[in-house]
């Protein structure tokens, strides 16, 4: 039995097929990378796993249970949390309160949720910003907050959507270190990423997609040399 599995998943938006008969499996404990050019269907994939969009076709299974068709809050409850590419801070709440909103999923008492949230902030290196309103964070800290808030729900699987986009090289390094710490803590991570360096550096396995279809799959080294991937990113002449 596979851990997290997409079987022939298809998603149409009107006449546009955003995800086309896509199948892959994520194994427990790994960092699984998904790459692809702009508009190739990476974020749509997350929106399907996390229940924001209904599937046009196919099935999604998690720990032997079919999860497509469930609402987003149920999927989070089952242990799949996500971040958003376009960060969604709860603007007029403090950083701590943002993370508490996540922690309440498993702790219904305020004091316990606050304690849990402080631990997560510490883990993510955001503790010094705990009492700041979320809307006044820098973009790098907002990305950290996205991760912290998702971690506070105590997920088994964490879907990270373009965490490194818009970060400078140093912030990128920090993000990579954080993602590795998250994996070490026992959480399975699925990363959608544009920044090659990030995804190639941390992923155990990588799936490359274009126009919603799989074009390659393998270790980061294999993917980087794959002619289809090079064609998708750099064009025919370089393949």
């Amino acid at each position: 039995m596979s851990y997290l599995e997409l079987r022939g998943v298809t998603k149409d938006f009107g006449g546009l097929r955003a995800v086309d008969n896509l199948s892959f499996e994520v194994e427990q404990g790994e960092i699984f990378g998904i790459i692809g050019p702009n508009g190739s269907g990476k974020t749509t994939c997350f929106n399907l796993i996390n229940g924001f969009y209904p599937l046009t076709g196919g099935e999604i299974h998690f720990r032997g249970r079919r999860i497509d068709g469930l609402p987003p809050h149920r999927i989070c409850e089952l242990g799949i949390a996500r971040t958003f590419q376009v960060v969604k801070p709860l603007r007029r709440m403090t950083v701590l309160e943002n993370v508490m909103a996540g922690a309440f999923l498993r702790e219904s008492r305020v004091a316990a949720a606050r304690r849990r949230a402080r631990e997560v902030l510490e883990f993510c290196g955001l503790a010094h910003r705990a009492d700041v309103e979320a809307k006044s964070l820098t973009i790098a800290d907002r990305k950290r907050l996205e991760i912290a808030r998702a971690l506070a729900t105590q997920p088994e699987v964490l879907l990270l959507d373009e965490t490194a986009a818009g970060l400078n090289p140093r912030e990128c390094e920090e993000a990579i270190a954080l993602i590795q710490r998250i994996r070490q803590s026992g959480v399975t991570v699925v990363v959608v990423e544009h920044v090659m360096k990030v995804i190639m550096g941390i992923s155990d396995r990588v799936l490359a997609i274009n126009f919603g279809r799989e074009i390659a799959r393998g270790t980061p080294g294999e993917i980087a040399r794959h002619p289809e991937v090079i064609r998708a990113y750099l064009g025919e002449a370089h393949a």
Partner: peptide
Amino acid sequence: NSKLGYYFVSIREDQDAAEALGIPA
């Protein structure tokens, strides 16, 4: 001042984010 309040304000601030955090809006 309870979990309810945090959930209410989360839904107000961003319903999509709230649902992704496991909050049945």
